[in-house]
């Protein structure tokens, strides 16, 4: 199925979990936070949170800023 990750169309396995997506993107050990369809998904729920086709996923981190 196709989802959108940080604005880019991405092909993933059907019903992939957020934990699996993070693993596939090799972001496992990074400090980040995630939204799906503009709703925050707490890290503790990554293993059970399944994604659906066309879900909009935002994976964010901290950067320098004023």
């Amino acid at each position: 199925m196709q989802i959108i990750v940080n604005g880019a169309a991405t092909e993933v396995d059907d019903a992939i979990t957020m934990a699996e997506l993070i693993e596939q993107l090799q972001l496992g050990n990074r400090r980040l936070a995630v939204e799906v369809n503009a709703e925050l998904v707490p890290r503790s729920r990554f293993p059970e949170r399944r994604l659906a086709p066309h879900d909009q996923v935002e994976i964010i981190h901290a950067v320098g800023g004023g």
Binding site: V5, N6, G7, A8, L25, Q26, L27, R30, R31, L32, A33, E58, I59, I60, H61, A62, V63, G64, G65, G66
Partner: peptide, 20 residues
């Protein structure tokens, strides 16, 4: 100290330093 919140770069060097 202030920081901003932005999209994570995907598919880039895993060891890339982070501001935190």
């Amino acid at each position: 100290v202030t920081v901003a919140v932005r999209r994570t770069n995907l598919g880039q060097t895993p060891g890339e330093p982070n501001i935190l």
